[in-house]
């Protein structure tokens, strides 16, 4: 098995074909509503996302899926997938998650020819698929959660950059400043045996995005 670090880099690279380039996670809607207009606003939002959503929900789901996959517990993965899906109240987010997760699974199945992840009927939500794929690539639970956190932040920062909210140097500044928060969110996910999130205000704005006419991002 190749070095874990290379697997983490591959899974967190924006080159990975899972459609993440088209998601802003509500940032487009918040920007349009005037709620986010500076690098500081964005950093505050991402800090809050990491604490109330990425850690307890996405990292936790990925880590649990990773564990189930390691134990060959397909039923556990299916159950987790259904629960995760049910916890996402925003349609765009739900659909994007399933689409990305399914495509990610397909890509990893293609390169690994792994029967373990080929079977199992489920929606294929993103973090759950992510955890399963990381297990197949020999990435640890901690590495998995770190990759989820980083991928989320990098995706949001990339969207903000394209929306013109921040400049390229600020983008790297935000990623740097958020490193302790990403670590904490990953640790949260590793230590949790539940999957939860609490960010109602962000969700309401994300729902507004569904009804926007002209948009650059699918979430």
């Amino acid at each position: 098995m190749a070095d874990e670090l290379l697997g983490i880099m591959q899974m967190s690279d924006s080159l990975f074909p899972a459609g993440m380039f088209a998601m802003s996670n509500g940032i487009e809607a918040m920007h349009r509503a005037g709620d986010i207009s500076t690098a500081a606003d964005l950093e505050t939002l991402l800090r809050s996302y990491l604490a109330h959503q990425t850690g307890p929900s996405d990292c936790a789901a990925a880590v649990r899926a990773h564990r189930c996959a390691g134990e060959g517990d397909i039923g556990g993965i299916r159950d987790l997938d259904a629960r995760y899906l049910a916890s996402k109240s925003v349609r765009e987010i739900r659909e994007a998650s399933v689409r990305s997760g399914t495509q990610m699974l397909r890509c990893i199945t293609e390169i690994l020819h792994d029967e373990e992840i080929r079977n199992g009927r489920m929606s294929g939500t993103y973090p759950v698929s992510f955890g399963v794929c990381c297990q197949a690539l020999g990435i640890s639970a901690h590495g998995t959660a770190m990759a989820v956190s980083y991928g989320f932040v990098a995706g949001c920062v990339g969207a903000a950059l394209r929306l013109g909210i921040i400049q390229h140097m600020e983008a790297q500044g935000i990623i740097h400043n958020l490193k302790p928060d990403m670590e904490r969110s990953a640790l949260d996910g590793c230590g949790s045996d539940t999957v939860w999130q609490f960010c109602p205000q962000a969700e309401i704005l994300q729902m507004a995005h569904e009804n926007q006419d002209s948009k650059m991002f699918i979430t």
Binding site: L15, P17, A18, G19, F21, A22, R99, S100, Q103, R162, K215, M216, F217, I218
Partner: peptide, 16 residues
């Protein structure tokens, strides 16, 4: 709707 990267959606990452 592919956002600002229409070529990405048909070339590098056609997953959508």
């Amino acid at each position: 709707a592919t956002g600002g990267c229409p070529h990405t959606a048909v070339r590098e990452d056609p997953s959508m």
